[in-house]
């Protein structure tokens, strides 16, 4: 790597003469080794999925969750250094609770992403810290109905000044990804970790911007994409962990929850079947995708 030996990669908060922060770039390398994580923003909810590499046979299946809940309506999944991801989630929960303290309501997904983006970015500025070794996908559902303020006791008078805009559209799905630099964008579909190139290619095929994909189909696609992304590291066992957030009248009632076991197993079966079908058709094209990934690195 060109950065080695130049001295510009020894400390955080030091630019190289051509304007790069090598410590941040090394953090990105840590992310690229992590299990693939995917988020899909559907018309009636958000799905998060992660490829959990089984590092030991002594680990209990289904334990050691990788997708965390923040407040009630937001989920965070990250790829990269797991302890960094845990600290990131802890900070997210603190931010969500402090938002509630001030505004007496749930934090919007966009606001949480903004605050966490600032937090991650601050870890690129000081020589005493290192950047986060994670890319985190934040998915959530902002309530489309008007929520009562926390602790609200009544509705107030029926007459008098209101100030509410009738028929204004509020809430909806939110999906953001924060990188080690603190950079974050909102996405229709986000992927990070080892198999991100394959996953992104699959996500692009879904035409998510049209807003037609239903949450249930999103769950199936997310499972399939994790299985596709795992093809490159087939020697390792993995477990699929998936969570979702739906509309208020959907299956999770606007809450972030684990995808029910039956549905998860169904999605996994479909994913495996799709892969086997694929293998027979085009073994050659898959090899190309892996090559282009190598070239980028």
């Amino acid at each position: 790597m060109t950065s080695i030996g130049t001295g510009y990669d020894l400390s955080n908060s030091v630019f190289s003469p051509d304007g790069r922060n090598f410590q941040v770039e090394y953090a990105v390398k840590a992310v690229e080794n992590g299990g693939t994580a995917v988020g899909i923003r559907c018309k009636d909810g958000v799905v998060l999925a992660v490829e959990k590499i089984i590092s030991s046979k002594l680990l209990k299946p289904g334990a050691n969750k990788r997708i965390a809940t923040v407040d009630r309506h937001i989920g965070i999944v990250s790829a990269g250094l797991i302890p960094d991801g845990r600290h990131f989630v802890s900070r997210a929960r603190d931010e969500a609770s402090s938002w509630r303290n001030v505004y007496k309501g749930p934090i919007p997904v966009s606001a949480l992403s903004n605050r966490l983006g600032s937090y991650v970015q601050a870890y690129t500025l000081y020589s005493s810290v290192r950047p986060f070794g994670v890319s985190a996908i934040i998915g959530g559902w902002d309530s489309e109905a008007e929520l009562a303020v926390d602790g609200q006791v009544g509705n107030g008078p029926n007459a008098g000044s209101g100030g509410k805009v009738e028929g204004a559209k509020a809430g909806g799905p939110g999906l953001y990804m924060i990188e080690p630099s603190g950079l974050y964008w909102g996405y229709y579909g986000a992927a990070t970790g080892k198999g991100r190139q394959a996953a992104k290619a699959e996500l692009e095929k879904l035409d998510l911007s049209a807003g037609n994909l239903s949450l249930l189909d999103g769950v199936k696609e997310a499972a399939r994409i994790i299985y596709v992304a795992h093809e490159d590291s087939k020697d390792k066992d993995f477990e699929l962990e998936m969570t979702w957030i739906s509309t208020l009248d959907g299956p999770t009632h606007g809450r972030h929850e684990a995808v029910p076991r039956e549905l998860l197993e169904e999605a996994e079966r479909a994913a495996k079947a799709a892969l086997e079908g694929d293998d027979e058709e085009d073994d050659a094209t898959k090899g190309d995708a892996v090559d282009s990934e190598r070239m980028q690195e």
Partner: peptide, 18 residues
């Protein structure tokens, strides 16, 4: 004080769900 306790319980409910 009821509102205070209500919010306190709400924060516990959120944390328990983690």
């Amino acid at each position: 004080d009821m509102q205070y306790i209500d919010r306190l319980l709400d924060s516990i409910d959120v944390r328990e769900n983690y």
